[in-house]
Computed example of a mutant assay.
Amino acid sequence: MPAASTVLLNRLLARGKFRHAQVLMELAELGSVQRAADAMGMTQSSVTQSLAYLEQLLEVQLFHRHARGVRPTEACLDLLPVARQIVAGLGAGAEAVAARQHQGQGVVRLVASGAAINGFLLPALAAFGERHPQVGVQLQELERDDLLLQVSSGQVDLAVCRQPAVVPSGWRFDAVAGDHLVVVCGPHNPLAGRRLRSWKTLSEATWLLPPVDSIARVRFEEVAAGFPRPAATYPVVTRSLSTLVWLLRNKPVLALLPYRSMAAWLGQGLLSTVAMDTGFSLEPVGVLQPEQGTRAAPVLLARWLLSAAAEVPPGGGV
């Protein structure tokens, strides 16, 4: 008879080891006991014994053995996301303890959106690190629902993001920088810097489409509905900012994107904009912080970010 989930949980709590999560991950990624052992600094027999112990503990086969190595079972694939969370959590905990021991004032767990990082946070964090080297900052990039989940579950100390429709209970949002949609292109695109009053000239261009669930996509489709013919689109849709930047710099394409998301590349001249007022404003970027019970280090960083608001450059592209 299969063991109940509560029985398995109690076994893992009483007899499981953090090393088991690492063994699971390395075996699944490398597909070989020997390669996993080399990666973890263990012997091949130790890895084999750890795997056998874990399978016995869970009463399930985790890997299929074959001549070339191992292949994860369905049960293993179910467990892998949990194993990754465990190892990632341990890594974050180790960094926090090390920061506390070696830097004195602790560490700030900071989560931020791409627009916040590229449109405001990069120079502010660099200046903060120079002024307060005793404070460690752990920065993770997330978007929208994933970011707010980290906030509402108390897994972060601060968040820098676009103003949410509903601020999580116990937190407050302070705006730092306004934002709007701009038409972005490579610096050598014939339309770069060209001042336009209407979308007509852009109707013949090839466009990089934003993700379907983004406000930029909604606004682009509103504009494209007025084109004399369906808009020509490039066959890649992505949230990856590095991919967008590469395509814009190397292909004759345009994209309707938030100014703050592209500000770092626009400021360096790696990208350009079409000089027109799109008429599409966005919610501002700002700081989400707990209303009370915050440690000294997050409070220090939050104050720094808000004090830096006056130095945030205005949006371009108009």
Rank of each mutant, 00 (worst) to 15 (best):
G89S: 07
L51M: 11
I86P: 01
V135C: 08
V274Q: 14
W199M: 10
A263L: 04
Q56I: 06
I117C: 03
Q134D: 15
L254C: 07
A192V: 07
V108K: 04
L12T: 08
P235N: 05
R68A: 15
E311F: 13
A21P: 03
G136Y: 10
E141R: 15
G178L: 02
R109M: 13
P313M: 11
S198Y: 09
A98W: 10
P123G: 01
A88T: 00
A297T: 15
L147P: 01
L266C: 12
R15Q: 15
L202V: 07
W199P: 07
A75N: 10
V285C: 02
W171H: 04
V107T: 15
R65F: 13
R15P: 01
R197P: 00
G193S: 01
R239F: 12
M276E: 09
M276V: 14
H180M: 01
G136W: 07
A205Q: 14
S272V: 03
W199K: 05
V274W: 15
L191I: 11
G136Q: 14
D157Q: 14
A296W: 06
L300V: 01
D145K: 12
L13C: 01
A263G: 04
G136H: 12
P133Y: 10
E221L: 04
Q49C: 03
W171G: 04
N189C: 13
Y259E: 12
Q134F: 08
R71Q: 05
G41E: 03
V182C: 10
V182E: 06
L30F: 09
P298M: 08
V318E: 11
W207L: 11
G279C: 11
G170K: 00
W304C: 05
S169N: 07
G136S: 13
A67V: 14
F120L: 10
H180A: 07
G193W: 02
S46A: 15
L57R: 09
M25G: 04
L271T: 11
K251G: 00
Q34D: 06
L13V: 06
V70A: 06
A302N: 08
S152W: 00
L305N: 09
A159P: 05
G89E: 13
L9D: 12
A36V: 13
L270F: 06
V183W: 04
T273V: 03
L248R: 06
L288D: 06
W207P: 08
R260A: 07
L54H: 07
L9V: 09
L142H: 12
G315L: 00
H102V: 08
L209S: 11
L57I: 07
A37K: 13
L306I: 09
W207H: 10
R295I: 13
T43Q: 08
P230G: 10
L51K: 07
